[in-house]
Write a protein that binds this DNA or RNA. Structure first.
Lengths: 115, 115
DNA sequence: CACTATATGACGATCATCGGCATATGGAGG
DNA sequence: CCTCCATATGCCGATGATCGTCATATAGTG
């Protein structure tokens, strides 16, 4: 699972939102770093519904145009928790190695080291 | 940056390794979850060298075939640290929201909740 | 003899994301 | 009045990382 998809699920983790609201929320969560393209958004929504990670929470037709809000399913919740755990484990391992390398002298020696 | 690439950088963060060694190390780091395909591996190595995140550490020709080991560059080290931080922040936010939702009653209510 | 481990590399296919376009309404600024 | 921006949904072609497989080579095990 990629970052945009993960952030999308995160945006739905506290309450249901519609497409545009998800874009805003992801933007906020990521500190302005990730702006979901609508192409990414609606393709991902469709995919995630198909996978059963999210579902249509509310739907109405306004001026012949759909207006939908989406919510995380139980499966989506479980999946998001699992992904978060995986991410954290990966990040921890990377940091552990980087600090080990610093101490052992391998690497660029951040600032005025033994070498 | 995707997970396989991130794990590749992590595999190089404590010492230089050659291609096959990276595959083994990534497998170990990820707890057997991620087995880098050679297609992914050598394409990624080329890309990362071009980006300056890794470099060829040692190279020799054995039976007319290259044998190279790769090492993280200073830039790669900085980048990996940044990615780890980003991952951790994302994971933290996902978890925070999931637990908030549990408390507020939104969501599937993991096991025998108020509803 | 077959299979696995070590080891490098190319090729086409797949899939998520990107970037832009189309459409529609309502409000603000010039 | 007209243009721009925010709100809002959705399609489509291009890009790019990864997947899956094939090719090549040696050494060891069953």
């Amino acid at each position: 699972m990629q970052e945009p998809t993960l952030l999308l699920l995160t945006a739905l983790s506290d309450q249901p939102r519609h497409g545009y609201g998800i874009v805003q929320e992801v933007l906020a969560i990521s500190g302005g770093r990730v702006k979901l393209r609508t192409g990414t958004l609606y393709a991902a929504l469709q995919r995630l519904v198909d996978e059963g990670l999210i579902e249509v929470h509310h739907e109405e037709i306004v001026d012949g145009r759909a207006r939908r809000s989406y919510a995380l399913t139980g499966g989506g919740r479980v999946r998001l928790a699992a992904e978060a755990e995986r991410l954290e484990a990966t990040a921890r391992e990377a940091r552990r190695r980087l600090s080990l390398a610093d101490r052992s002298g391998f690497g660029p020696a951040p600032k005025g080291a033994t070498a």
